[in-house]
């Protein structure tokens, strides 16, 4: 529908020529007014349609980009890129977190392996940074290593960089693909549930009963190597997971978010969600790698999933208790 054009200089809107003098005709004199309204109306309509089209294209492009980010293209991992960026990771790990990874020699030298970690430090998850650094310098960037991360992490502006480090969206299928490729795969079964636990539960393994990693290891017949980390929960003060808030806002259904954490973190102070970039406190971080668990050797041909789950989490809890006992002060370590 054509819209009513606004009056312009020298042109009336009632269809009559508006002569301001009797000399040479103005530009308006040469334009038939009857057609002008239609022309402007059509142009406006086109502009609206064009802008709608552009907006739709933008949305489609963003959706495609998001979809691409969430796909597990293992080839996105770029060893040269990792090598070139190790200095930055090393500086962060060494100066800021004074990070330490113990017993990396417990990871089998070759072949696919499922590294099972307890998740700490909120969406920034510093242990992923320094463990990737430690793994890459210990085994070399040539050894394939993938980390599974929540969709939201990959959808963030950091997503493209993380993909080059070997991060793929957390899903059973993506883990299978990575193990099939002979990679070492780092998973955090506790996911968002564990990573946003209150700071005073720092020394608690809490996978929330998620046993998918056991099924995964059995399906591909790969060893499980537990990786226990402490310190991440001291990089901010987590007050509550906010599971009730996530449920209230239906985020569990719309964004696969079981929690919406409430935390105090610089520079924002009290925050909800942990979505904004924040300055993590320089907490001393320590990871310890436990000996490999060969499920069928240790639990028989048909291992009981619950039994394996209890065994793995029990061993990790025992190690975490030991690491917690070493710490004298929060943050300082």
């Amino acid at each position: 529908m054509a819209s009513q054009p606004k009056p312009v200089s020298g042109v009336s809107t009632n269809g009559h020529h508006a002569h301001t003098n009797g000399g040479a005709p103005k530009i308006s004199d040469r334009v038939p007014l009857e057609g002008l309204a239609d022309t402007v109306g059509r142009a406006t309509g086109e502009a609206v349609r064009l802008s709608q089209g552009l907006a739709m294209k933008g949305v489609m492009r963003a959706a495609k980009s998001l979809e691409k980010r969430l796909q597990a293209d293992l080839d996105d991992r770029d060893p040269d890129y990792i090598r070139e960026n190790l200095p930055l990771s090393w500086l962060m790990a060494t100066i800021w977190y004074r990070a330490e990874v113990r017993n990396l020699s417990n990871v089998p030298e070759k072949g696919p392996v499922l590294l099972v970690g307890n998740h700490t430090g909120g969406n920034m998850s510093p242990e992923t940074i320094f463990f990737t650094l430690a793994f890459s310098t210990y085994f070399g960037v040539e050894r394939r290593f993938h980390q599974l991360a929540h969709n939201l992490v990959l959808a963030s502006p950091l997503g493209p960089f993380l993909r080059r480090f070997g991060t793929v969206a957390a899903s059973h299928d993506n883990a299978l693909k990575a193990l099939d490729a002979g990679a070492a795969v780092l998973v955090f079964p506790g996911g968002d549930w564990e990573v946003h636990r209150p700071s005073w539960q720092s020394s608690k393994i809490d996978f929330g009963g998620r046993r998918g990693f056991v099924r995964l290891a059995l399906e591909k017949d790969v060893p499980i190597v537990p990786v226990v980390t402490i310190g991440g929960q001291e990089t901010a003060l987590w007050l509550d997971r906010g599971a009730w808030l996530a449920k209230l806002l239906r985020l569990d259904r719309t964004a696969r978010l079981k929690v919406l954490p409430i935390l105090i973190a610089p520079p924002w102070g009290l925050t909800v969600g942990d979505f904004l970039p924040r300055l993590p406190l320089p907490a001393k971080m320590t990871s310890e790698v436990l000996p490999a668990i060969h499920l069928r050797e240790q639990f028989g041909e048909e291992p009981d999933i619950d039994e394996v789950y209890e065994y793995v989490t029990g061993a990790m809890q025992e190690t975490l208790d030991g690491l917690a006992a070493e710490r004298r002060f929060p943050v300082i370590g």
């Binding site: 090598r83 070139e84 960026n85 190790l86 200095p87 930055l88 090393w90 500086l91 100066i95």
Partner: peptide, 15 residues
Amino acid sequence: GVAGGGITGWISEHV
């Protein structure tokens, strides 16, 4: 020497 060079490489070498 660390790979990649750049400012982080230079700082890492000196640190």
